[in-house]
Design a protein around this nucleic acid. Sequence first.
RNA 1: AGAGGGGUGUCCGAGUGGUUUAAGGAGCACGCUUGGAAAGCGUGUGUAGGUCUCAAGCUUACCGAGGGUUCGAAUCCCUUCCCCUCUACCA
Length: 423
Amino acid sequence: MLTLPFIRANQETTIAGLQKKHFANAAEIVAKLIAQDDQRKALLQQAESALEKSNAAAKEIGALMQSGQKELAEGKRAETAALKASIKEMEEAAKAAEKELTDLLVTLPNLPHSSVPQGKTADDNEVVLTWGSVPELPADAQPHWDLIKKYDIIDFDLGNKITGAGFPVYKGKGARLQRALINFFLDEAIKAGYYEIQPPILINEDSGFGTGQLPDKEGQMYVTKEEGLFLIPTAEVPITNLYRDVIVNEKELPIKNVGHTPCFRREAGSWGAHVRGLNRLHQFDKIEIVQIHKPENSYAALEEMSLHVQGLLQKLGLHYRVLRLCGGDMGFASALTYDMEAWSGAQNRWLEVSSVSNFETFQANRLKLRTKVDGKSILCHTLNGSALALPRIVASILENNQGPDGIKIPEVLVPYTGFTHIN
RNA sequence: AGAGGGGUGUCCGAGUGGUUUAAGGAGCACGCUUGGAAAGCGUGUGUAGGUCUCAAGCUUACCGAGGGUUCGAAUCCCUUCCCCUCUACCA
């Protein structure tokens, strides 16, 4: 959530930023916000000065009662009783104005960083770098949805039976490969200074609001019927919300957390030709890294996170590229996002395997996550990224490493899997 | 799940309708004291909003959360969340 003082002081920047994100009617909405804020302030002042009067009167009555001047007190009481109704009205008006204002404010996306390219769709994203080269595959190379059947390691039909589409069952070496990747990614993060967290995978409404999933995107999350709790779409939500309503001691920054969780996404309406097999699932495992910083350090941290993710891809030997997302393709809460895409040899296309973002103060403002600098409390910057999400990494490994003697497991994973080939 | 007891500032903790303007203590910061330190003494010590050119000042709200009663609520009532004890259940 953007802050009103910022919008007031930087109207041009705000409008330009919203437009870069292709937010409709930016200028009108900024003008409306400011007008509504003016109104809120006026109503608030009215209500507060009435309250001040009534507080003073109540105090007088108290003093009169104490000193035994009952009749005077009674008279005063009758006088102030009349104030009550109008105070209530004024308070309600001020509250309503405030609600209207925040309802509008939460619909605004974060402003993009100056380095974010103009553009509307994924085609306008900027390729920052490409690492490695396209693997040479045998002529009869198969896509992963055939390989998983051939080696009987991931079973969609069984998943259909016990749950539904998009909930695969991992079996044998498929299951062991999952476990190996999870441990490898966690160990690498810990080596890089992250502190491991195992959070709940159901979250309440306040947490959903804090990281920006609510109020807008509840349709993307699964909800429990009785309690109204949401299944997390990413560990970003519970881990970042650990710091909701917290004033972090300056000395404790930066905070670097890592967690592995399953992630659940309804993906309503987003199925199509490109989402066969492991490309898009309702449930998948992901290792998420989260950082909290003082504002001046957050962009250096973003680069560090990007390098960490790239290091993982390099160790796995996957041909990948890094994209700087354009304004139209970025997430709602992000100021700058790098996507990492791994090459999928048999599908002949890039698969998004990680997304690393700086949210600046956008989440922190919703979370009320602050720190103190020179005695003044300021909003922290929050960042997160996948390091990494499993299914598309598995797809890439299977496709890129297939050969006559089966699928070769990347060397760094062998100590974790306990086997060198799937065959 | 049932019965009972609780939730107060950074922490401990007092407080059952009116100088609570939240006592007292600890911690922390600064100052005095000291050769230096400790002890001692003194001062200060939350968050958010409004007003204000800035600061000071003034002001509003905040005692788990939300609502209500009242001229006045930490205190009374209702709803809800969480914690503890006992019972039941359970990996």
